[in-house]
Computed example of a mutant assay.
Amino acid sequence: MNDIKDITCAGECAAREESAEAELLRRNRELTELNEKLSRAQEQLLQSEKLASIGQLAAGVAHEINNPISFVFSNFGTLDAYIVDLLRVLAQYEEAEPFIADPAMKARIGALRKQVELDYLVEDVPVLMSESREGIERVRKIVQDLKDFSRVDGHQDWQWVDLHHGIDSTLNIVNNEVKYKADIVKEYGAIPEVECLPSQINQVILNIVVNGAQAISGVRGRITIRTGCDGANVWIEIADNGSGIPKAIQSRIFDPFFTTKPIGSGTGLGLSLSYGIIQKHHGRIEVQSEPGVGSTFRIELPIQQERDPDAGAEGP
């Protein structure tokens, strides 16, 4: 009888040990998963802070560049007026040249005219001035777009902004990434100003446009940006005719660290951060894609953010 009790007790102990071991393994798995989630969250936070730092750096650099560009641009206006006056004086001298009595002086002036190709200079100087002014204006525009794109301040205040202006600034910033691969087509609708964090929305546009350009290979492609208003929301669609996204992974593209790019070519955080930004704005971001045809990302944003009574004065 005692043997039977011993066997029963041993079986119960073994069962308890197995149960405890299984529970320990389960908790170990949960802790491992939790640790991985915390690591991913930390990586996302670091990436967000890095983007904010880059934005602050870009805004600072843009400010520093803008100062010398401003006085160079101002000097160009004065220099342009001076050149016009000098050319007027030169024209009067040319008219007086036939009346020079000294043959030797007249010959030296004629030789110098040919040496410096005066007629060509008179035609080319205004052209060079015009092209230089255009170049400086383009630099000023790029600097301004960089400032608009960054739009970083200490509090990241919610602002009422023109989304079209932000999109245009962003497109100018990513022009070098896109211009060799695709044409940009804008189909803007009538939309009101939207309450948002503009630098973050600009970052979302940048991520999607750059991804669209990278999905285009071979024949020159097209990226179409449409906007419109639907009741209390505005929407932005960014469509490309690139390689598309396979159906099997479409549900994962907003997951942190998920990427189809080669190792070292992407962090897998761009679309994940974009998703988080749109969620922070109480909006939606969706994708429709067909392999070999292209992808369309649709962003919906509320025109005005709902106020949280407990959020204080900082915003939604």
Rank of each mutant, 00 (worst) to 15 (best):
F297P: 00
C13R: 12
P262S: 12
G154T: 02
T267L: 08
A59E: 15
K106V: 03
N211F: 03
G11S: 03
S130D: 12
I109L: 12
N175F: 05
E237T: 07
D153L: 03
I83P: 01
H155V: 14
V89L: 13
F73L: 15
S53A: 13
K186N: 07
S265L: 14
Q156I: 05
Y188C: 02
H155M: 14
I238R: 02
D162Y: 02
S74F: 11
Q156P: 00
Q159D: 09
A111M: 09
Q305M: 08
S74H: 14
E43M: 11
H155P: 01
Y120S: 13
G221T: 02
D6V: 12
L38K: 04
Y180C: 06
R29N: 10
F73R: 10
I205M: 01
R113W: 06
V293T: 01
M1F: 01
A58D: 13
E193K: 11
A20D: 04
R108D: 15
E290A: 03
S70R: 08
A59L: 08
G264P: 10
E21W: 08
G266H: 07
A311P: 09
S251M: 00
G231I: 07
P68C: 02
S39Y: 03
G212S: 03
E36V: 08
L45W: 10
S272A: 09
V127H: 01
G244D: 00
V219W: 02
N2C: 02
G268M: 01
G110E: 15
I167M: 06
H164D: 10
